[in-house]
Design a protein around this nucleic acid. Structure first.
Lengths: 230, 230
DNA sequence: TCTTGTGAAGTTGTTCACAGCG
DNA sequence: CGCTGTGAACAACTTCACAAGA
């Protein structure tokens, strides 16, 4: 199936690049807030901890938005990256599970702002129903399908305990949601066409432990993992 | 300098593999809880959403722990992966910032268990000092250096607002901590030799938005990102 | 002059396909 | 026979180094 088409996709931005665009965006917004009008690839690369050639190549996938001898216009680049990521339109998000994590997400800077609108907070636990979190009243999980339809929810966020996650995911899929962000420590089963991204708060910790162990073992020189020696 | 030692016991496990080991570990623990004694690469791969050849190659970096014609012994593999990740010893973790996110982390399954011990919860806000979270009393940020020394903290977790993150990071580094897990939406500056991993809860959301936009634009067939078509 | 944008080279990661072992 | 472990082919990603433009 799917023989390699002779003319692939012109808009094919590498996945690795897509994963870095939000990082650049964040740094650019910080520069913009400090009133800095332009930035060179060298400087932006240093700020974000990547190689400057990689940064230029990443940006070149969006188009030629730099000025040789000068650098990139901060505001214009913010706009272009936002547009590419689809953040110039507002995406409605529903968060299920209003424990500490759900509350943290609802209040997370950049989660409720810049391109995302929290349309609903839902939970199954009677004791939190009606609580006001980030300006929203917590609703019952059974209203999920209605909320998705009425609020035009396109992204579902699962912040429930592991045991409830698959059920919530099924409800999202049933309601027509095709993008799910899962914080519960389980692997979700979804039909083809549904995107699931998983954030596991403890996996990062385990990766750090691995490197920490390396340092403790007989190991010649310390090595940077994400940092930049320069 | 550091000429490669003649026989360095090639312990160089690819970074991509290290990042997947926690995922396999999680799936294996789930199998173990259900009393399943052995698993094939095919089955474990399906559960975790990777290609089975990749899984076998990943595991082959740890050693030859499978049995041809049978598969892998679940318990034994759990032990081997745990050992490789350094989870057979307990790592002391200090969490700074006891807002919703800090509380969520302190209560996160697998964060306080399986290889990690939360040694301290610290905050600068007077109003939360002394609160009991996950069985621990919240201490003052100024005791950080003492706590790191007394509790032998090797990993620092930053769950503060963005504005406080660099200061907290500096305190960790000053106190001798060389691994930092940062949840604040800023890029931290650290000296060489210190590992920083960053988790940005909104970056994943932005990546989802990108793919959601792709689906909305004229786009021939839906594509799986993390899923497995089979 | 300074910095972008990009071919080309180099590195890392993935998948195939099958030999070899239980 | 079934499944692992792995060389070899392939694909993706990163970095180098420099031509070309402002």
């Amino acid at each position: 199936m799917t023989p390699p088409s002779p003319r692939p996709r012109d808009r094919g931005i590498p996945e690795a690049t897509v994963a870095r665009l939000p990082v650049y965006l964040r740094a650019l917004q910080a520069l913009d807030e400090r009133g800095i009008p332009t930035v060179s690839s060298e400087h932006l690369a240093e700020t974000t901890g990547v190689n400057s050639a990689k940064l230029r190549k990443d940006l070149s996938h969006l188009g030629s938005y730099g000025t040789r001898g000068v650098g990139y216009d901060v505001e214009y680049l913010i706009y272009q990256i936002s547009r590419e990521l689809g953040l110039t339109q507002d995406w409605s998000v529903a968060i299920v599970g209003v424990g500490n994590l759900g509350r943290a997400l609802a209040n997370y800077g950049g989660f409720g702002t810049r391109g995302f609108r929290i349309a609903a907070l839902l939970d199954a636990d009677e004791s939190v129903l009606g609580d006001r979190v980030a300006g929203l009243a917590v609703g019952h999980i059974d209203t999920l399908a209605d909320v998705v339809r009425e609020e035009n929810v396109s992204i579902g966020v699962i912040a429930t305990p592991a045991a409830a996650a698959q059920d919530v995911c099924d409800r999202f899929v049933e309601a027509g949601v095709t993008s799910v962000l899962n914080f519960a420590p389980v692997v979700l089963n979804v039909p083809p066409g549904v995107d699931v991204r998983k954030v596991d708060l403890s996996i990062e910790l385990q990766i750090l432990a691995f490197h920490e162990q390396r340092k403790a073992d007989g190991h010649a020189g310390p090595e940077l993992i994400g940092g930049d020696p320069a």
